[in-house]
Structures are given as C-alpha cells and as structure tokens.
Amino acid sequence: MVRYIINRLIALLITLFIIISIAFCVVRLMPGSVYEMGGDLSQTVIDALNAKYHFNEPIIKQYGYYLENIFFHWDWGNSAKIRPNVPVFEILRDRIPITLEINLISLFGAIPIGMVAGILAAIKKNTIVDHIISFMVVVFISIPSFIFATCLQYFFGFKTGSFPIIYDVSATGTARYASMVLPILALAFDPIARVARYLRAELAETMNSEFMLLAKTKGLTYAQSTVRHGLRNSMVPLANIIIPMFANVLGGSLVVETIFSIPGMGGLMVDSINSSDHMLTVAILVFYSLISLITILIVDLSYGIIDPRVRMGGKK
C-alpha cells in the first residue's frame, strides 16, 4: 500500500510538471504582453521591466528562468497588474482559504444529503417519493449554479433578509458563516442532485442482485439487508463521480464567487486573464490542477478502503 501511494505521488508530480509547462506556454502565447504601451508607463520603463522579468527573451528561456525560480527559490513570480510586485504565492495564500472553505463545505455537505435522497428514491422506486426526488434531480442538474445564486440572493437576501446578500469580508464568527450560507447553497444543488441520481441507479441495481436475495433468505430484515449489503456495494462506484463533481463545483464557484463578491480564487482567475497578469494566471491554473490531482489521488486511495478487491489485488 505504501509503495502504491509513493508511486501515485510520483505520477502526480510528473503530471503537475506537464501541466505547469503547458499552462506556461499557453498563457504566454496569448496576444498582448504584460507591459503595454498606452498606460502611464514610458517606453524606457517598459523596456527596463521586460528586461528585468526576461520578457524580451525567447519563450523557452523564459520557461527555464521560471522553473529555476520555482525549484530553487520557491518563487512563483510577482503579480504585474492585480497587485503589482506582490509575490503570486502570497496572493494565492490570501485567496485560497475562502474558496476552499466554500467549495469543500458545499461539496461535503451535499454528499450526505444527496445520498439520503438517492437511497430514499431507490428503496421507494417508482412511487411518488421517487418521482418527486427524480424531478428535483433533473431541475438541480439542468439549472446552472449562478441562476440559483441570483435566486437565493433575491429571495433569502433581498425579500426575507434572512442572510446577507453578499459575502461580508470584515465579519467574523457566526456573521461570517451566515454570509457564506447562500453561496454554499448555490453551489450545493448540483452535487446533491448528482449524488442522488447516481446512488439511486446504483442502489436500485444492487437491490436486485443475488446477494441481496441471499441476505434476505438468511432472515435479515429489509433494513438490515439494505444497509449491510446494499449500501456499501453501491458506494464503490459513487467514489468515482466525486472527481468530476469537485471540478464542477470549482467551475461553478468561478461565477458564484463573483456574484457574492467573495474575495476567492474564482474572481481572481478571471481578473488575471483579463489584465494579462501572466504569472498570476499560471499560478492559478496550477492551483486548480493540483486540487483536481489530489482529489483523484484521494478517490483512488479510498477505493482500497471501500473495496477489498482493490486493496488485496496487489499482494498475491
């Protein structure tokens, strides 16, 4: 198992390196350069800046400098436009916590709710309960999160005033969490629906399997056989959809953060691209990739915990 984890970590680093390379090149190939004429900078200053940051050299050399700085100085470059001369790493450090907080809470809050809904729908299959849940699932999956965000803002923020309309940066404690409720909700609908839909299908299939029948003929009650045999078996494939789901939530978060004016990664990414703040853009891309890679790793490792066939597969 330890060896497997080490293998996976090495693979993760290699993947990350490839992503950094591609991100660096793609961002650098966008039209427009970091320092442009027309602002309040004179040509001399621009030339000096370009020389300082090696922007006047071939892209492959720039890439060399970039890697060298990261590996030997843990220096991801400085921001040029958003917060001039502040190290990119520092900007991310300020922004990442709130984004992660909101995304993870909505995702991990959504999973149990979705599971309950999915289980209900599966064991009450083809009844009114199932139909209602399945209808909600379709609605939640097909409506994008920013629509929910605006609706929530209107009904719970503006009409009833139960929660703040936008995120309150200065608030602390309960007030801070209160202002996080609406964005978390807006992001949670989609994962809830996905988990519910998936678990319903999986569990309904597992319930028809032979080993459920055997559990029944042992004399287990309906609840006992469903919980002990049905559920755990339908969890195995469920772990699989967590990866795309997390990416989905992060994607939705790009827009939702802007709607609730949350000072997180979402807004930063759009801003940095728009203002050609290349160093910042690359760093943000790397961050998002790293999150996805770590999610995949965790899911793969969790397979081993849930499914003995994976755990024991390696050792003969």
């Binding site: 080993f211 029948l213 559990a215 009650t221 755990r232 078996n233």
Partner: peptide
C-alpha cells in the same frame, strides 16, 4: 406479510442458490 417471513427464512426454511458466484456479497468477509 414480509415481517412474518423474517422468522421463517433461514431459521425454518433456507435456500441454496443457483449461482454461487453472484450470491455472496463481494465486499464482505
């Protein structure tokens, strides 16, 4: 009713299945 069978199945009447490959829960010891 379903509930009444809980005391019959296994205790009074038990069943051996046709396909042993799929009759056991794959992830339970």
């Amino acid at each position: 009713k379903e509930k009444d069978f809980y005391d019959i199945r296994g205790k009074e009447i038990s069943l051996i299945f046709q396909d042993p490959l799929s009759a056991l829960n794959p992830i339970m010891k």
